[in-house]
Design a protein around this nucleic acid. Structure first.
Lengths: 242, 242
DNA sequence: CGTAAAATTGATCTGTCTCAACGTGGGTGG
DNA sequence: CCACCCACGTTGAGACAGATCAATTTTACG
């Protein structure tokens, strides 16, 4: 498959098996894509909620700003990820979404979503995808709430590794993660300085290196253990997991 | 209406308008209720996900435990709240749910959920309810990640006040909140000791008193300002908010 | 090359935790 | 009906993870 929808369909295909017709519908609906540059806001908190985005390439995130300028990143959107299609039921979105690395996106307006919801498998795959993202958010809350800086970073890297593996964006135990240390800080509720120190600790322990946007996990089992990472929450929705 | 489903229907009615038939379906489906005592686990992480609960009375919460015994509370379930009906698509649940105050619950098995999903307004109301709970979780992530202990507590109390008001469980600016300080700590990622000190600070500032499970908000505007609380995330799904 | 953003390092500060003790009120069994 | 008990709340003192402030170096890129 060479369609722009490749990663998306690959991602969804882990949640359901599609008929050729459903596959075609997914390709059609994501035909018109758009490129976005770093820093672009795809939606801002308070905007009307009348579409959802599919990230086909690059990296985006959902975030909220506090009045004092501090930012909490609420979710990463990797290639293949999409917003919750149910979200169009809302009048306004409650958090913003911006581009962290040059991105190709497809926009699904209400009509496209309704069309896709007709197909049982597509509808179920999108729902499972949304459920997984909710499970990730729950885990992030635990992460930020109850884990040390070291565990937080380790846990996040384990999670990202598994998510990128699901869409074929890892090689061995390495992957590209185009985030600055400040952005990692906004994700994990740590200062950029402390992210830096924790990253060095991970490096000295020969668990992970993170340089030039490249993450290399040198000892995955040890990292998983050190971070208390249990991948169950990422797998509970896959079609084979019953 | 005197049905046990009263709070639930009242909660959902803020998200959609029901036909008499839909109303009846909601009452029927929640007919068989069960009482649960404090400490009961309604589901445990890893259990098969084949039903959702509706809380009709009392207080329950979703939580995750870390291996070292620390607990993060992920959500409160007040009277009228329910689990996300889509959750039955998952093979297993990823977090536990327990009773914090004597509770009356209705259990919706797959068949009931499917029946309710037939009714457009019911289906949409349940979806909006689930969306609101997701918005709450995002806000909690911001809370735990980026706010001070003082703001966290204030923010939580503002939120709870609004949520209870939506189901008619407040009087003036007071409401019952049967949580221990330790449970508040597990929610806000603070130690019970520090919750206590922060509560005293709120009391000394004449903003809030919390004693014998009774919360009295003495100065709501000031509390809202001090906590940086913006209720938009709770209202974006209501039927009148377009 | 030059420049700005990002990473790195050191020194100091602080919010919150931990530990430990003590008070208190409501429920229970004798 | 009283006495005990246990969970919960309250208070104090000291410790520490991570924040903040302030340079300095490295990297990316026009």
């Amino acid at each position: 498959m060479s369609s722009a929808a490749y990663r998306w369909i690959r991602r969804l295909a882990r949640f359901a098996t599609f008929t050729p017709e459903e596959q075609r519908a997914l390709e059609e609906v994501s035909a018109g894509t758009r490129r976005c540059a770093v820093g672009d806001d795809l939606v801002k908190a308070g905007d009307p909620s009348d579409r959802v985005f599919v990230i086909l390439e690059g990296l985006a995130c959902r975030y909220k700003l506090l009045p004092d300028g501090r930012r909490q990143i609420l979710a990463y959107l990797f290639p293949g990820d999409m917003g919750d299609p149910r979200q169009v039921l809302q009048s306004r979105v409650d958090c913003s979404m911006c581009v962290l690395w040059p991105t190709e996106i497809a926009t699904l307006a209400l009509a496209s979503i309704q069309r896709l919801e007709q197909y049982t498998n597509v509808s179920s795959a999108m729902a499972r995808c949304a459920l997984m993202q909710q499970a990730i958010m729950r885990e992030w809350l635990v992460n930020v709430g109850h884990r040390t800086a070291f565990e937080r970073l380790g846990h996040l890297l384990c999670e990202v590794f598994m998510r990128l593996e699901a869409v074929g964006l890892t090689r061995e135990h390495a992957f590209e993660l185009p985030l600055t240390q400040a952005e990692l800080g906004d994700t994990l509720a740590l200062s950029a300085v402390h992210v830096n120190r924790t990253l060095m600790e991970l490096r000295h322990l020969k668990l992970v290196t993170f340089q030039n946007r490249q993450v290399v996990i040198h000892d995955y089992p040890a990292l998983q253990a050190a971070a208390g990472f249990d991948p169950a929450y990422l797998l509970n929705n896959e079609k084979l997991s019953r």
